[in-house]
Amino acid sequence: MPNDDVISSLTEGRFDGREAFDAILRQALSAAAQQGWKEIVFSDPDFADWPLGERATIEALQAWAASGRRFMLLAQRFDILERGHARFVPWRRMWDHIIECRATGQATGAEVPSAIWTPSWFVHRIDPERSRGVSGSEPRARRALREAIDECWRRGRPAFPASTLGL
Score class of each variant (00 low, 15 high):
residue 70 R to P: 00
residue 42 F to A: 02
residue 146 R to D: 08
residue 44 D to P: 01
residue 76 Q to P: 00
residue 94 M to L: 11
residue 89 V to R: 14
residue 51 P to G: 09
residue 85 H to S: 13
residue 111 E to F: 09
residue 110 A to W: 11
residue 104 T to K: 04
residue 141 A to H: 06
residue 119 P to C: 05
residue 136 G to R: 04
residue 128 P to D: 12
residue 44 D to C: 10
residue 46 D to F: 09
residue 88 F to C: 09
residue 54 E to Q: 15
residue 45 P to R: 13
residue 43 S to V: 04
residue 107 A to V: 01
residue 110 A to Y: 14
residue 130 R to M: 06
residue 132 R to V: 13
residue 123 V to A: 15
residue 55 R to N: 10
residue 102 R to Y: 12
residue 136 G to F: 06
residue 137 S to Q: 12
residue 90 P to F: 09
residue 37 W to N: 01
residue 79 D to L: 03
residue 113 P to M: 08
residue 58 I to M: 06
residue 47 F to G: 06
residue 145 L to D: 08
residue 103 A to T: 00
residue 74 L to G: 00
residue 147 E to L: 14
residue 102 R to K: 12
residue 135 S to V: 04
residue 56 A to M: 08
residue 91 W to I: 10
residue 117 W to S: 07
residue 67 S to C: 00
residue 79 D to R: 10
residue 71 F to T: 06
residue 113 P to Q: 07
residue 78 F to I: 07
residue 50 W to R: 01
residue 144 A to H: 07
residue 110 A to N: 12
residue 67 S to V: 09
residue 121 W to R: 01
residue 82 E to Y: 13
residue 81 L to N: 08
residue 46 D to A: 14
residue 109 G to C: 04
residue 95 W to A: 09
residue 114 S to Y: 01
residue 55 R to P: 00
residue 125 R to N: 13
residue 81 L to M: 14
residue 95 W to L: 07
residue 96 D to C: 04
residue 113 P to N: 10
residue 103 A to G: 15
residue 95 W to Y: 14
residue 134 V to Q: 08
residue 110 A to V: 14
residue 48 A to V: 13
residue 109 G to S: 04
residue 135 S to D: 02
residue 127 D to Q: 08
residue 114 S to K: 04
residue 124 H to Y: 13
residue 140 R to T: 13
residue 81 L to A: 13
residue 67 S to G: 14
residue 120 S to T: 08
residue 80 I to V: 15
residue 145 L to H: 10
residue 81 L to R: 10
residue 72 M to Y: 08
residue 63 A to H: 10
residue 69 R to E: 01
residue 137 S to R: 11
residue 85 H to N: 11
residue 97 H to G: 05
residue 48 A to W: 02
residue 71 F to D: 02
residue 91 W to A: 04
residue 36 G to M: 04
residue 77 R to G: 15
residue 107 A to L: 07
residue 106 Q to K: 09
residue 54 E to I: 01
residue 41 V to K: 01
residue 58 I to W: 11
